[in-house]
Structure formats: C-alpha cells, structure tokens
Computed example of a mutant assay.
Amino acid sequence: MGCSTQEATTRVGPTPLPGSLTYGGKVVHSRYRPGTIVKNTFLGQFGYRVFERYVVQPDGTLRLTYQATGPDFLWD
C-alpha cells in the first residue's frame, strides 16, 4: 500500500511543552530572516533537558520543527 497525498499534508510537528517558546498557543515573532533556525533548550519534566529547533516563517513567527529530550547530566 502506498502513502496518499492527504496523509503527507496532515502531518503534525512536535507538540510544544511547558517551557517551549510557543507553548499554550503563544505567538513569538523573530527579527531574523525567514528560514533561520532558532534553538531553545530548557529543563523539562522529571529533570530531562529538552532541545528544540524552530524555523522562522515568512511572517516572522516561529514554527516548532524538532524536539528531543535527554538527561541533564553527563556520565564520565
């Protein structure tokens, strides 16, 4: 079975978490050029570090495109 076009266009990106720049429907405008990547890092639930990447849209708003979590410490 193949993938339909509608399935590809309805794909949703990561969901903003408490601490995300766009959490709760907040609209953030950037002074950077469209297409610029903006990084955000914060301490999330259970002490995990959350890493996010946003892309500046043509209207100056930020769109969350990447989100990952990892421990907030390094093992030696």
Rank of each mutant, 00 (worst) to 15 (best):
M1Y: 05
M1H: 09
M1G: 11
M1Q: 07
G2V: 09
G2T: 14
G2F: 10
C3I: 08
C3S: 11
S4R: 09
S4L: 04
T5Q: 11
Q6F: 09
Q6S: 13
E7W: 00
A8T: 04
A8W: 01
T9F: 01
T9Q: 12
R11D: 07
R11A: 14
R11P: 00
G13M: 02
P14F: 04
T15L: 09
T15Y: 02
T15W: 00
P16I: 05
L17K: 12
L17N: 07
P18D: 07
G19C: 08
S20Y: 02
S20Q: 04
S20R: 04
L21F: 05
L21Q: 11
L21K: 13
T22P: 02
T22Q: 03
Y23N: 11
Y23F: 15
G24T: 04
V27T: 15
V27A: 13
V28D: 03
V28A: 05
H29C: 00
H29W: 08
H29G: 00
S30Q: 05
S30L: 05
R31G: 15
P34S: 12
P34G: 04
G35T: 07
T36Q: 14
T36I: 04
V38S: 05
K39M: 12
K39V: 10
K39P: 11
T41F: 07
T41E: 15
T41H: 11
F42M: 02
F42A: 07
F42T: 01
L43G: 10
L43Y: 04
L43C: 06
Q45K: 13
Q45I: 06
Q45D: 13
Q45L: 12
Q45S: 14
Q45H: 11
Q45M: 10
F46M: 12
G47Q: 08
G47C: 07
V50Q: 08
V50R: 03
V50D: 02
V50N: 03
V50M: 10
F51W: 09
E52D: 07
E52F: 01
R53G: 06
R53C: 10
Y54L: 03
V55K: 12
V56G: 06
V56I: 08
Q57R: 14
Q57I: 01
P58R: 05
D59C: 09
D59I: 06
D59R: 07
G60S: 09
G60Y: 06
G60M: 04
G60V: 08
G60R: 04
T61C: 05
T61P: 07
T61W: 02
T61E: 03
R63N: 14
R63T: 15
R63P: 01
L64S: 04
T65D: 01
T65G: 06
T65L: 09
Y66C: 01
Y66Q: 13
Y66D: 14
Q67I: 07
Q67M: 12
Q67T: 12
A68I: 06
A68M: 09
T69Q: 15
T69Y: 04
G70Y: 01
G70A: 13
G70L: 00
P71G: 12
P71I: 11
D72G: 15
F73M: 06
W75D: 13
D76V: 08
D76P: 15
